[in-house]
Design a protein around this nucleic acid. Structure first.
Lengths: 230, 230
DNA sequence: TATAATTTTTTTGCATTCATTATTCATACA
DNA sequence: TGTATGAATAATGAATGCAAAAAAATTATA
């Protein structure tokens, strides 16, 4: 990944632009898992030719957000229960590492930032504002990854996280799970403040495992109402 | 990843073929880090047009093997010391997870296979045959990943591993490091046989950390001889 | 001679076109 | 009526063509 330089004029090529736009469409749920992607249709929508679109599709395929079948085109990737069960332990391991590194490297300023995000998140929890909660939740995890000072780790985690987003975005949480998630975040913050790497590490692993369970449940619920996530 | 069905005829599209061929050229060192990739040249070499080639380059860029600069084309990705320092802890965390999962799930047959690979690898070590050693080493790690039964994990690890391969491929090891690596592998095998997840996990983390050190050293050496790895 | 400016060449980015492969629809047949 | 076969249509895969940008080469100038 190219580092973004200050002052540098960011000239994005068309296919690059298409990649992020398409990614958003998928992650934010307009293109649901399983949907067939018609090239002509998207070309008209973005007012571009097929060449950059096809290049973008290849990239998204290698990221795992779309599936390409030879001569049959692209579909938005579908996740089976199995896929979810595979992904969360991996994300757990990655975030556990991030936590350990963050404990060694985090600055007071970064910690203060995370603390602020945390308590703002708690407010949204108390008001029952799920989308806002999600947003801050993600911001906290991002901030911790940033504090780990390992862009490679961040990128891989973000990519995985992006792949589950289409499922998570539409997943409701039971109040019980939600409460528990907030409690876990409380402990995570304390461990980070104490720079207790091993503890933070195991808390994060546990936390991600529970997140996985939440998405699992949501997928079951979705299946019942014929709104399959994947 | 599409499941391979029995009887199904696997038809690879051109760009897909190009992706793996180009990847091999990079990983096996024919295209060294930093080399500019000329589209016309590669088109002639593969006897294809620019379209599938460009699609392949986009994919390899998203895998991190090549770097694309707008209007300036592609170069084989270069790794700084810093990149290496970032990647190995991540690979360590991933393989540690793989080890834990493998302890839970590995079959006797798989274990026997790994054992066989291990002792064959030791033979190559004793004969000082580095390429063969590398090959078996990789096979062992692959087999353990397979035993973890988590294709998502395997894919991510493989992708990362592929990114460092261009560096590792050309890295020599001191006899001391090599001896130590073999000793570590011995312990790893024992832990796997004992299904001792936590032990295996920490051994692998340590092992990967040492691998990182080895590559680091090799990079320094390469820099000295004006043969920069990246 | 060294440097700057300008022209030429090369290379990249994207659109378009052509060929091949799926899919759909209509027809024939049991 | 339901299935099978074949033609028509649409979609994908890859090659070519064209415009813009970058690199190289040439000329002009101090």
């Amino acid at each position: 990944m190219p580092t973004i330089m200050p002052e540098a004029i960011t000239r994005r090529s068309l296919h690059d632009e298409v990649v992020s736009r398409l990614r958003d469409l998928i992650v934010e749920g307009e293109f649901r898992p399983g949907t067939r992607i018609n090239e002509r249709m998207l070309c008209e929508r973005f007012a571009i030719s097929r060449t950059p679109l096809r290049e973008a599709l290849k990239v998204l395929a290698s990221e795992g957000l779309v599936e390409l079948t030879p001569n049959r085109g692209a579909t938005v990737a579908t996740f089976t229960l199995r896929d979810i069960e595979e992904m969360f332990p991996v994300m757990g391991a990655l975030e556990a590492l991030a936590g350990e590194l963050a404990c060694q490297r985090i600055t007071e300023a970064e910690l203060a930032e995370i603390r602020a995000l945390h308590y703002q998140m708690v407010v949204h929890f108390q008001k029952g504002e799920l989308p806002e909660y999600f947003h801050l939740n993600q911001a906290i995890h991002e901030a911790m990854l940033a504090a780990a000072r390992n862009p490679t780790l961040s990128n891989i985690f973000r990519s995985l996280s992006g792949r589950v987003s289409p499922a998570r975005f539409r997943a409701n949480m039971s109040r019980a799970r939600w409460t528990r998630a907030v409690e876990e975040h409380e402990k995570i913050l304390k461990a980070l403040e104490a720079r207790n790497g091993p503890l933070l590490s195991s808390l994060l692993k546990e936390h991600l495992s529970n997140k996985g369970e939440t998405v699992r449940e949501a997928m079951f619920a979705a299946e019942d109402t014929r709104e399959a996530v994947g």
